[in-house]
């Protein structure tokens, strides 16, 4: 790592090497040790700003009412469905088709005046001969 890169990283991430890119931390610390006389003042300045940030870091926790409002809006539990909505629609469509076809077939059929079916249904059957008359 050269001095320019060191200064750039110090300006970006501050004096806490734990914030530096993982693969450049070691080189940064080594340069800081090897050139302490030249970079100590810069590190102290960066550390002071880090400390100002740290002192301003605390924030109050989210209030309970906000938490409750957010949880109220969370997705509801899914109810178990025995029949899929698509199947319900398919059944309804079949029923409707059946009604339409039945109505259509009735309308297309010619009404019959032939009363033979009616007569056949209600006419008394021919009388059977008495059992004793035979032979």
């Amino acid at each position: 790592m050269d001095r320019t890169r060191f200064e750039h990283l110090l300006e970006a991430y501050g004096a806490d090497f734990a914030r530096w890119p993982v693969d450049e931390r070691g080189a940064g610390e080594a340069l800081a040790r090897a050139h302490a006389a030249e970079v100590d003042a810069m590190i102290a300045e960066a550390r002071a700003l880090d400390a100002a940030f740290a002192a301003a870091k605390a924030t109050p926790p989210p209030n309970a009412a906000l938490t409750a409002r957010i949880l109220m809006a969370a997705p509801p539990a899914r109810r178990p469905q025995s029949v899929a909505p698509a199947a319900v629609w398919a059944l309804a469509a079949c029923a409707l088709l059946g009604v339409v076809l039945g109505y259509g077939a009735g309308a297309l059929t010619q009404p019959s005046d032939d009363g033979s079916y009616f007569a056949a249904a209600f006419e008394a059957p021919p009388e059977a001969p008495p059992v004793g008359d035979q032979g």
Partner: peptide, 28 residues
């Protein structure tokens, strides 16, 4: 990050000794 930190440092320059110095002491 670098531009932001420079700008904040400049904005706090008028109170740097009090603000940054004390914060530094507090953190230690």
């Amino acid at each position: 990050l670098a531009r932001g930190r420079r700008a904040i440092k400049a904005a706090l320059a008028d109170v740097a000794q009090d603000l940054i110095g004390d914060a530094d002491g507090a953190s230690r």
